[in-house]
Structure formats: structure tokens, C-alpha cells
Simulated assay, not measured.
Amino acid sequence: MKILLTGAAGFIGAHCALRLLREGHRVIGVDNFNDYYDPTLKEARLDWVRQEAGDFPLLRLDLADAEAVTSVFEDSRPDVVIHLAAQAGVRYSLSNPRAYASSNIDAFLNILEGCRAYPVQHLLYASSSSVYGANQRTPYSLRDNVDHPLSLYAATKKANELMAHTYSHLFGIPCTGLRFFTVYGPWGRPDMSPIQFAQAIVTGEPLQLFNHGQHQRDFTYIDDIVESLARLLDKAPLPNPDWDREHPDPATSMAPWRLYNIGGQSPVELRDYLAVLEKHLGQRARIELLPLQAGDVLATCADVSDLQRDIGFHPRISLDEGIARFVAWFRDYYHRDPSAAQQEVLPMQMTFPLPS
């Protein structure tokens, strides 16, 4: 298939591009290479993909530019769109809200308009576990209420799900939204906890653990995310014939629209997570235990039963195996030159990661 892949230089996007190219798909990548974190990492990801799977076209443009997006669709006429581009980061949305309106709302509207003008077989797009917001019942079910987001980032991801449903209903665009749970692995973002924590451990910087390290997160290894995406690629949703307006199913619709959780389904306590990092790094962390921080989510856990039923797959990479792979990459990328880590890792935020 000819696949338009947005966010192709991002963490998930680069891994997805590699898988698609290896399977023989024609990939047209798009990325704006913004400076939310060092674009050098994005360039390095692309070099890695091209070394492993060959070259592919990569368009450098801002998806909030409606004319540019229209031209991309007109020129490429994709069969499938995988939309992973977004302004990431929960805490960053507190200080830079307009970046989220532009990257996550305006850009997604332009993607939907492109799919409307140049019909595609399937639009898959990244949502987030953060949409569960104030919900405290675990595991997080697709049938749970998600009307109380706790960040603008989460609100934009929920808005994406609603916008996709509208276009699916009005114009018949098959849309699948994917709620990712705390993705980690090689080539990850430097604002996420694996790189932040690993860097603190190897440099001896103290780690401040709120809630005395008792937070839990449902970590999902990157290969499991990509495997799920690959299996969903040719499974465009159909209208649910049993959908009932009186008792609506929040994960399906009378339109060709669908939602899935993609998570490890095995929440890990922060202290156990750190112990695995310490084991594979061969060093101990300097830890400072602190009380619960206002606004922190205590635990996340994905109910992936719908994913298992529809594609026969659930995430399989254990935390121990995933962290081992991550550490091998971390040492190679950041510590071939010891000064590289200091130059490229963002200032450390010693709090447990919010849902992402």
C-alpha cells in the first residue's frame, strides 16, 4: 500500500516507518522537525531507518498549513494515512497551550480534510491514555467515561477522537483511534522518563520520587505498539450493526469508526521500574522520596481485550526485556561521547511520567 505517515521522524513514527518499509509498503513521511526537543535526534532516527530499510521520501512541512497538506494528498494519493504527528508532552501544554491548538487540532483537521477530498481506505491516528483524565477505575476500559481531561494535551487528543467520528459519520472515512499507554524503547523522546531516569542514574543526579515511588504506569514497549499498528493497517472499521443510540458503545459507532487501547496491561510501580533500570545500567540511583504531588495520576492500566479480540494480539515484551534493549541503545547513542548526553537530554524533571 501507499501510506502517508505523519510524524515520521518521531519516536513511534520512525519505528513504524521501519516496519512498513520492511514489509514492502510505499511510505511517504511528513515531519515538521520542531524544536520541542533536539531535532538532531529526529535526524538520527531517519538515518537509522534508511540504513536498516532503505530510503523513502520525507516531506518537511507544518501540517497546520492547510494548503501544504492539500498538496501532499493531491500529489501522493495515499491508500492509508497513519497520523502520529502531534505536539507531545503533558506538562509542556501548561506553558505552551497554543502549540497544541495548532499541532493537534488545526493539523488534524487538515488531515481529515485531505482524507475527505482524496478518499483513503483507512485513517489510523494516535490518541492517548491521558484522555482517561480524572477516571480512577483500572484497568482503563474503552467504555469508561473520558469527559474530564486533566491537561490541554489530553483535551486535544479527546477532540481528535470526536473530530474523527464526525468525519467518519458525515463522509464515510474509516477511522481508528489508538490510545497509547506510556510507550518506551530505543530512540525514545528525551522528555520521557526512561532517558531522564537513565541519565540521572549514570551521572549520579538525585531522583525525586513523588508519592514515595508508589505510582504505577502501564509501560508499553515500542515494538508492541508497531505490531498492533501493522495488524490494524488493513482492518478498516465497519459500522457496528448493533450500535444502540439509547445505550451507545463509546468504542464503536454506527459510522466506520473505532477506538483501541494499546498498553502492556501490566502496571509497574515506579520503584520496581527503577530497580530494572538500575540492574541493566549496573548502577544505583540516588533517590529522594517525597509526598504525592497535586494533580498526579496514581495508576494507569489498559484493558486491551478489544485489541486481542479483533487482531489476536496483546503486547508481549516484558519490562525487563524492553529496558535491556533500551539501555543498550541509550549507552550507544548518548555515551559514545560522554558529553553528548549533557548536550542532548532535556533538563531533568524528576517526577513520574504522566500518562502519554
Rank of each mutant, 00 (worst) to 15 (best):
P241M: 04
A230M: 05
P186E: 11
I262M: 05
P206C: 09
H215A: 06
L270P: 01
P186M: 14
P239M: 05
F219A: 13
F180H: 11
E227S: 04
Y221A: 08
D249R: 15
Q214F: 07
R179M: 07
R179K: 12
G213Q: 06
K235P: 02
W257D: 00
E205K: 15
I222S: 10
Q199V: 06
F181T: 09
A251F: 00
D224N: 06
I225R: 04
P250M: 03
P237C: 05
T182M: 07
P194S: 12
F210I: 09
P256I: 11
M254E: 08
E227K: 02
L207G: 14
A251E: 00
E246Y: 06
S253E: 00
D244W: 02
T220Y: 01
D191H: 15
A251K: 00
A200D: 07
Q208M: 05
L209Y: 12
W243M: 06
Q214Y: 05
L207H: 09
Q265H: 13
P250W: 06
P194V: 06
L233M: 02
W257C: 00
E246P: 00
I222N: 11
G188S: 15
L178T: 03
V226K: 01
M254Q: 08
G264S: 05
F180S: 07
N240R: 03
V226D: 04
M254S: 06
F197M: 10
Q265M: 10
A200C: 12
A200P: 09
E269H: 06
D223S: 15
R245E: 13
